[in-house]
Lab assay of single mutants.
Amino acid sequence: MASQGTKRSYEQMETDGERQNATEIRASVGKMIDGIGRFYIQMCTELKLSDYEGRLIQNSLTIERMVLSAFDERRNKYLEEHPSAGKDPKKTGGPIYKRVDRKWMRELVLYDKEEIRRIWRQANNGDDATAGLTHMMIWHSNLNDTTYQRTRALVRTGMDPRMCSLMQGSTLPRRSGAAGAAVKGVGTMVMELIRMIKRGINDRNFWRGENGRKTRSAYERMCNILKGKFQTAAQRAMMDQVRESRNPGNAEIEDLIFLARSALILRGSVAHKSCLPACVYGPAVASGYDFEKEGYSLVGIDPFKLLQNSQVYSLIRPNENPAHKSQLVWMACNSAAFEDLRVLSFIRGTKVSPRGKLSTRGVQIASNENMDAMESSTLELRSRYWAIRTRSGGNTNQQRASAGQISVQPAFSVQRNLPFDKPTIMAAFTGNTEGRTSDMRAEIIRMMEGAKPEEMSFQGRGVFELSDERAANPIVPSFDMSNEGSYFFGDNAEEYDN
């Protein structure tokens, strides 16, 4: 993207840094990872977990959730003011799984939030270390993106479920800051804005008074975040219109849905970061690795190297396929839920299948599930090659597409044709070009129609051997075009429920 120079890199967003050079960025990201790792080690000690239990991804998720809940100030305040039966607002906890007599047992633990905050700050040299908290939120978000298709949420806001490739980060909490905003897809931002506008339509006082002023500035800020994701002048001009509207209503909703559809071809720039579970960072720190000293990046080879040398386990339900569970977590670790499966298959070195073909449910185990038949197995999170994460949407291309997802959002900077089903997408653009945004709409449609099938995206960008740390010898991959490109292809993934 041309304006790259004016933006802070995501590592800076990730670490609240002012302008830093590459070495400083690597050190501050490393410091953040160190903090998460030290916190995780301490929690495993508190909970008396064995090494194996500490490497269980379900335990990692519970521990991450506990610290996120302990620092969720708004919710904590709300819980104190609106006490609900049987919930102690000062405590947080969740299921911890232990191996007892050759069987997995679930144990519900409860801790004072104050105590968890103390352990977290102690692991982070006394700081609140917001960057580390956001990092864990993005890992949870990436896992949700890989596990669930947001059909219901899309339909509720009037969008087409086939636009799911635009929904990265749709389950990120509001408090995820600049680093969170960077990884949100165009569809996620559109959905947040539509929800806001709908509230304004239904509630006369939404934009009024002292609160209304705050609401208005939040609305304009979200519009600017979305505008910054678009790469064409016409899309940005249309966002200006939406932002400046005196009284946002149905016309703005129409414009936003139009823009979301246009992003299936004229893709937005959305950041991709490899955020790993805390149970990967903990053992690495415990083994003596100093992330701050060595430096770390979320968008280069580092996460690949770390996963190459990590042992992570997962509980497996009786009829689940461990290899499929591994694929789910591998995609989440690489922030690749909406990437082209052919690119992923090449990088991973084994075939990556669409969601609907995987015999696996989510990673988390519900409290009512029976533990008797639970097994555990090693997650295979290694890769054959590594590639640089991208934040450009890439230019655009036609490809055989599917009944489910009709476009992709690249996660890796790797040369390819970008699949999208042009006739299906263009069919949504018939007729409606009147109104105050008509010239911009016409211009956007013209650009979409001009998108050429034979153009290559990320020209000359390749993948790298894991021994090639400096990215000196790019390998331009070859793809098996007979395979499906979309992950949520004609899909039956479970729906995400809060």
Rank of each mutant, 00 (worst) to 15 (best):
Q4N: 15
G5V: 00
S9F: 13
D16T: 13
D16V: 05
G17Q: 14
D34A: 14
R38K: 10
F39N: 12
M43L: 12
E46G: 07
L47G: 11
S50P: 14
R55Q: 12
N59V: 07
S60Y: 01
T62C: 11
F71R: 12
F71M: 07
R75A: 04
S84Q: 09
P89C: 15
P89E: 01
P95F: 01
V100Q: 12
R106V: 08
E107I: 05
K113D: 07
W120F: 11
G126I: 05
M136Y: 04
W139H: 12
D145R: 05
T146C: 09
T147N: 08
Y148E: 01
R150T: 03
T151V: 06
L154I: 15
T157I: 15
T157R: 01
D160F: 04
M163A: 12
M167E: 02
S170D: 09
P173H: 10
S176F: 07
S176R: 03
V183K: 05
K184T: 05
E192C: 11
I194N: 01
N202L: 15
F206W: 06
W207M: 02
G209V: 09
G212I: 09
R213N: 11
R216Y: 07
E220G: 14
C223M: 13
C223S: 11
K227W: 08
Q231I: 10
T232Q: 13
Q235P: 12
A237F: 01
M239L: 12
Q241F: 11
R243E: 04
R246E: 02
G249Q: 12
G249C: 12
S262C: 11
I265V: 15
R267V: 00
S269W: 09
H272K: 06
C275K: 07
P277S: 12
G288L: 10
F291D: 08
S297F: 12
V299C: 06
D302S: 14
D302N: 15
L306A: 12
Q308Y: 00
Q311W: 00
V312D: 03
V312P: 00
S314N: 11
P318K: 14
A323P: 05
W330K: 05
M331H: 05
S335I: 06
A336T: 14
F338H: 12
T350D: 12
R355D: 08
R355G: 04
T360W: 01
G362E: 10
V363Y: 01
I365L: 15
A366H: 08
A366S: 15
R384F: 12
R384G: 07
R391M: 03
G393I: 02
Q398M: 07
Q399C: 08
R400P: 09
R400F: 06
I406M: 11
F412Y: 13
D421E: 00
A427H: 14
F429I: 04
T437K: 11
R441C: 07
A442D: 00
M447E: 08
K452D: 00
P453R: 15
G462M: 04
G462T: 03
V463F: 03
F464D: 07
L466I: 14
S467T: 13
R470A: 05
R470M: 08
A471C: 03
A471Q: 01
P474H: 01
P477L: 03
M481Y: 07
S482V: 00
D491V: 09
Y496I: 10
Y496R: 03
D497I: 12
N498C: 03
